[in-house]
Design a protein around this nucleic acid. Structure first.
Length: 1194
RNA sequence: GGGCGAUUAGCUCAGUCGGUUAGAGCGCUUCUCUGAUAAGGAAGAGGUCCCAGGUUCGAGUCCUGGAUCGCCCA
């Protein structure tokens, strides 16, 4: 049986297209919809093309049709992967199979439940995808096609996925689905981020421990890491289940995992490369540190332990190197003063030289009064930058030390210094502050080079006590004293005071972080750390960023660009256990070697490891390969690995190559799949994955690793609060999925707003999307299926000239463009709108704008539902084949457009209405031009007709006359092109308004009068400042003359400020002025008036309609099916029976009555009725009796 | 403290190049239609377009300053 009948113009020799003009095959073979074994062809096709398309034989060659179009019948090669052969459908997934009529393209396969629960439907569609292996097939189908590359940013599976994960995952799904339908091969390898502190903390909690000491001594690294390996996949099942349930197509079977040996080896390779470029060095990092636990705390741990405390703060006076002035410096941490190497001011703030008594001080002008009071006399003012230039240095160090000579220390400036509190001058101790470290490192005047180990001056030991270098009063030592000990603080202050350095000591209350485990105040403390010198590649990073498209665009030069501009070296190492081990080995001589592969390690050490994690890799040593420059001899001392592991961001940032074990394997795969066309994560990844990907690629001298980045916003709860587990306001995704379904949730995320703005998550809003869009679509689809089944005989009857309008294809292909008439206008309009929407959706999705694309689809569905179907009901009831063809084409196209958004409902509709492929997700994305010719004139006309109807209904409402009551005439004011447009659709307007005639009048004077207004948009640029005068001149014109001139193309001039201007039609806006008390509705230049006179004839017809309405209700109450025939008996008030007599045929037709009995006797005769009802019509009594007809005449 | 973004009807959001009377959906009130019916249609009520300046003939839209909220960084 033919799978499809297709047409294609011979001139387009590049491809074979199917009925809707979508390419099914082409020369390159890259967009194959079918593998063709046999082609029945009505005209000669180039043999070359056919063979290129995989066609094996040609059967028939007869010319048919006109305009040289020809028909191809293709038989798909049935492979194990394609859908079962025709007629051998899988089990019904929904509704019962329709089997009582022949298979036909216009016939749906299954009946549809109008109240279908979407979550249940989705589970069935998921099952169908599994049976038909659709995801895999969607990839196989694009074998050999160009790749469109997606990178999955790996989540950590040690906790359950939340709603925000659903958000990023549906956006990670929609664009790959779209691009697949566009013809690309889009592989989607899943991935898991397995290492890192969050995993370790979870395991610590699980084991009931809380310190590194406990891990090393009680548990052991081996057991600890084994526990981490277990724990990291604790929720992987749930992740997989959710991923599948929300319709995120991702290859989970072959997901990469950052803990796998090949992955680790690739990471080692990258680090060795980076080290080989001289970009890896050991430096220091100032981190929050608990001296009792001797451990570093992560930022979220720090956040746990803030407490308000009162500390002594000290105002110091430091003598400048040259001059009498003293710098006033304020500190809340006197213990850091021994580490002082410089002071800093703000370059932009104003500073003052002030006299107090016989002393002269320097401090921020703003702080003079708060610090020194009224007695201070300002001698001079200058900026911070000038201060630096003028004084340059001060006498130091503040505390004497064994290894420091008294001398001058520099005055620096940096933006981080503020004048909010203190003195606007701060002391810098790079070992104890991040800003201090950064500013000191950047200054050439401070003898500190971050890339040189040992150049940082730090007199505090890891246990929080001073070492022996700091000298106290009279040669006393502070060695071994705990720096936060209050007694020590007093001693330090007394020491300073004795030396005349203290202006004042003041208690200061502030919020200070404490260890959340033991309550010890934290120190900010420089720890040795391995760095990558990314700041040396700042320009390269910025250049690479220039090649990236960011969504939203402001991220590029905003948040992300700023971050790159202020780039600091990447602190790579972590003193932890569960991570990729840092592949750095060191010998006692301080030589360093970075190992770049497992083979290299095995070769050097002789040890072959199965697992390169700690602690196994810690035991492996080898002779130092470094060659002593002096002697030329190898060093040869035993190297041991440094204890650190790598920052997990380096793991995930390595995924472009590490997922393929590049460069050890699959080099070609990697090269084809680099860079990514698309990545998508939440905004918090700007400093995370977005950065690590870019940094690593740049460090390896590659291109930017991604071309397009979609940056998602945060999900807040209904009150605008951040969702968090601890607040208990997190919405559990399963709850939403079970209630509304995945399509509903997806639709909400895609269309409710631009995703980067963040969401106020609300279940009500999701429900609204279901009601307004999904249910409306489903309802339209249900309507089609209901009537297609009811009209089965007409639709599947053999084609005759009558039944099939000329030019349509007997299989339900696209309606031909040669037909005419109002019904066809509606068809053409629907198809034109569908084509326009298809192009718009493509364009918007190409621009990563799912929001507008989705809203466009919703608009189309609304037009189909509330206008096309509404206006075409009669035709469906009559079995009008063109109407069925049109609606089917539109619905199938909607399904295809919707496939990337709501993959479940889209697939269900496609499968039932078309089903020529195993899934809608194997289709090509619709293209407007191939679908139907655009008729923009008609679209405009239809918009006008709808506007006219709206006005007409408004006029009816004003007059309080029901739409069921026919009226004799509607008078429509329209002119020129507008009139031509509406006139063409007059029947539509007439029916919708239920009037016998539509009359057009050109001049609005008949219904009211005009008002003329200037068009500022055109006149503004011409008149500029004289615009108000011009507006007055236009307003002064006679509206009637203006209207006539506009109509007849006559010229009208105005004179403004001595300047003449000839008005064009565009320069004026004519508006209806409201007349009083008539049934007229007007808007802009349009108006509709209704003749309200109702004669006997109209009244009878109205009553007949009312009766039909009542009978329809009775039918329904009686539980009859739509297509059931009835016998009908009516009795009641005489005027109603008169009207019924008058319109007996009409009533019979509308209610499917094979017989209509009227009057008391008739009712009595039909005594054996199944159903009787008493009602009122028009205030008159009506008695309805009915029963199913004995024989169905059909 | 710095950076980025947001602020439009009770709620959720549109608003194009600056153009006069700022829109939609939901909700509310009234009416209406209907064999798609838990939908649809019409009308009504509902607005200091966050505030203050500025540019302009004209500002929701552009500029400056400020407020509030959110995020990131410190």
């Amino acid at each position: 049986m033919p799978a499809s009948i297709s047409r294609c113009a011979p001139s387009s020799r590049e491809s074979i297209s199917d009925a809707r003009g979508r390419a099914v095959a082409n020369r390159s073979g890259s967009r194959l919809r079918y593998r063709l074994s046999t082609v029945f062809c009505s005209a000669r096709l180039p043999a070359r093309l056919l063979s290129a398309c995989g066609v094996r034989s040609l059967r028939a060659l007869t010319v048919r049709g006109y305009r040289q179009t020809f028909t191809i019948t293709m038989t798909p090669v049935v492979t194990s992967m394609s859908r079962p052969a025709e007629g051998v459908l899988g089990p019904p997934t929904m509704g019962r199979l329709v089997t009582d009529h022949p298979s036909h393209p216009l016939m749906p396969r299954r009946e549809v439940d109008p109240r279908q629960e979407l979550p249940a439907l989705e589970l069935e569609v998921l099952e169908r995808w599994r049976e038909r292996d659709v995801f895999a097939e969607s990839l196989r189908m694009r074998d050999g096609a160009d790749q469109w590359v997606f990178y999955e940013g790996p989540p950590t599976a040690n906790g359950p996925p939340g709603t925000h994960h659903v958000l990023s995952r549906v956006f990670k799904d929609i664009y790959p689905r779209f691009q697949t339908m566009r013809g690309y091969r889009v592989e989607r390898k899943g991935g898991w981020d397995c290492h890192g502190l969050p995993v370790e903390i979870a395991v610590e909690q699980q084991l009931g421990i809380s310190s590194k000491a406990e891990i090393e001594q009680r548990i052991g690294i081996e057991a600890f890491n084994a526990a981490c390996r277990e724990s990291v996949f604790a929720y992987v099942q749930e992740w997989n289940r959710l991923t599948e349930r929300i319709g995120f197509w991702l290859d989970l079977e072959h997901a990469y995992r950052t803990l796998d040996e090949p992955y680790i080896e690739s990471v080692w390779w990258a680090l060795a490369e980076i080290a080989g470029r001289g970009l890896l060095y050991e430096g220091n990092k100032v981190v929050p540190y608990c001296p009792r636990c001797e451990t570093t705390l992560s930022s979220h741990e720090v956040a746990l332990g803030y407490e308000d405390v009162v500390d002594p703060s000290v105002y110091l006076k430091l003598q400048v190197a040259v001059g009498e002035e003293r710098l006033l410096v304020w500190t809340t941490t006197p213990w850091t003063l021994p580490g002082n190497v410089a002071v800093a001011v703000s370059p932009t703030a104003d500073y003052a030289r002030v006299q107090v008594g016989d002393e002269v001080f320097l401090l921020a002008e703003e702080r003079v009064e708060p610090v020194l009071g009224d007695s201070a006399q300002i001698l001079e003012r200058f900026s911070g930058a000038e201060l630096v230039e003028r004084y340059q240095s001060y006498r130091g160090p503040i505390f004497a030390a064994r290894d420091r000579d008294p001398g001058e220390l520099p005055i620096l400036s940096d933006d981080f210094v503020t004048t909010e509190d203190g003195t606007g001058i701060v002391h810098l101790a790079p070992a104890f502050g991040e800003d201090d470290y950064r500013v000191a490192a950047a200054s050439p005047d401070v003898p500190f080079d971050p890339t040189v180990a040992g150049s940082l001056y730090n007199p505090v030991r890891p246990d929080g006590t001073y070492d022996g270098r700091v000298l106290g009063r009279e040669g006393r030592s502070y060695e071994g004293r705990f720096v936060k000990d209050p007694a020590l603080t007093e001693e330090l202050i007394a020491d300073l005071r004795e030396r005349g350095l203290v202006l004042r000591v003041q208690e200061y209350e502030h919020s200070y972080p404490h260890c959340w485990r033991c309550g010890t105040p934290l120190l900010y403390y420089a720890k040795p750390s391995w760095y990558i010198a990314t700041s040396r590649l700042r320009d390269e990073l910025l250049d690479a960023n220039e090649t990236v498209n960011w969504y939203p665009p402001h991220v590029k030069h905003g948040r992300f660009g700023d971050w790159l501009k202020n780039n600091v070296d990447w602190a790579l190492s972590r003193e932890r256990y569960w991570g990729t081990p840092l592949p750095v080995w060191r010998c006692p001589q301080g030589h360093v070697h970075v190992v770049g592969s497992f083979a290299e390690l095995a070769e050097r050490s002789g040890a072959v490891l199965e697992d390169h994690h700690r602690p196994y890799v810690d035991d492996v040593g080898f002779p130092c390969p470094d060659v002593e420059q002096a002697t030329g001899e190898p060093c040869g001392e035993q190297m041991q690995r440094v204890p650190e592991v790598i920052d997990v961001w380096f793991d995930s940032g390595s995924m472009p190559f590490a997922q393929h074990h590049y460069p050890f394997e699959h080099t070609e795969t990697f090269e084809q799949r680099f860079p990514a066309d698309f990545i998508c994560e939440a905004q918090d990844q700007t400093r995370g994955w977005f950065y690590s990907l870019l940094a690593i690629a740049t460090l390896l001298s590659w291109r930017a690793p991604y071309r397009n980045v979609v940056c998602l916003g945060l999900i807040l709860d209904e009150e605008g609060q951040k969702m968090s587990k601890s607040k208990g306001n997190a919405v559990e995704p399963w709850q939403v999925l079970d209630t509304y379904g995945a399509d509903a949730l997806r639709w909400y995320f895609f269309t409710s707003k631009q995703p980067w703005d963040g969401y106020r998550f609300s279940a009500d809003a999701i429900g609204e999307g279901v009601r307004l869009f999904l249910k409306q679509l489903w309802s339209t689809y249900y309507f089609y299926v209901l009537y297609a089944n009811a009209s089965a005989q007409q639709l599947t009857a053999p084609t005759t000239a009558q039944a099939t309008p000329a030019g349509t294809t007997p299989d339900g292909g696209s309606p031909d463009e040669e037909r005419g008439g109002p019904a066809d206008d509606l068809d053409r309009w629907a198809l034109s709108r569908t084509a326009a929407t298809a192009d718009l959706v493509s364009e918007r999705l190409d621009a990563y704008d799912a929001t507008s694309a989705g809203r466009a689809i919703a608009g189309l569905v609304d037009e189909l539902s509330n206008w096309y179907v509404r206006r075409s009901r009669r035709r469906f009831w009559d079995g009008d084949r063109a109407a069925f063809q049109t609606l089917r084409t539109c619905l199938v196209t909607v399904a295809e457009l919707l496939a990337p958004f709501c993959p479940f409902v889209a697939d269900e509709i496609y499968d039932n209405l078309d089903g020529s492929l195993a899934s809608v997700h194997l289709c090509d994305f619709p293209q407007g031009a191939a679908l139907a010719p655009r008729d923009e004139e008609l679209e405009r006309a239809m918009a006008l007709a709808r506007e006219t109807v709206r006005l007409g209904l408004g006029a009816r409402g004003q007059a309080k006359i029901k739409v069921r009551q026919p009226l004799s005439e509607a008078v429509v004011v329209a002119d020129g092109r507008e009139r031509v447009g509406i006139e063409r659709l007059a029947d539509v307007v007439r029916e919708e308004l239920n009037v016998r005639r539509v009359r057009f009048v050109a001049a609005a004077e008949e219904l009211g009068s005009y008002e003329v207004k200037p068009n500022y948009r055109t006149l503004g640029p011409i008149f500029g400042k004289e615009m108000p005068l011009a507006a007055d001149a236009v307003a002064a014109l006679d509206p009637g003359r203006v209207a006539a001139a506009v109509r007849d193309g006559g010229a009208l001039g105005i004179a403004v400020a001595g300047r003449d201007h000839t008005l064009s039609a565009d320069d004026v806006i004519l508006t209806m002025r409201a007349p009083d008390g008539y049934s007229v509705e007007r808007e802009g230049a349009h108006a509709v008036a209704l003749d309200l006179a109702i004669d006997a004839d109209l009244r009878d017809e109205g009553r007949a309609r009312e009766m039909v309405h009542a009978i329809q209700g009775a039918r329904k109450t009686a539980g009859l099916q739509v297509e059931d025939r009835i016998e009908l008996a009516l009795d009641g008030a005489a005027p109603l029976l008169d009207a019924a007599t008058q319109h007996r045929d009409y009533i019979a037709r509308e209610t499917l009555a094979v017989a209509v009995h009227l009057g008391v006797d008739a009712v009595r005769e039909a005594a054996a009725t199944d159903y009787t009802e008493q009602t009122e019509v028009d205030g008159l009594a009506l008695n309805i009796s009915l029963r199913p007809a004995r024989q169905d005449p059909r």
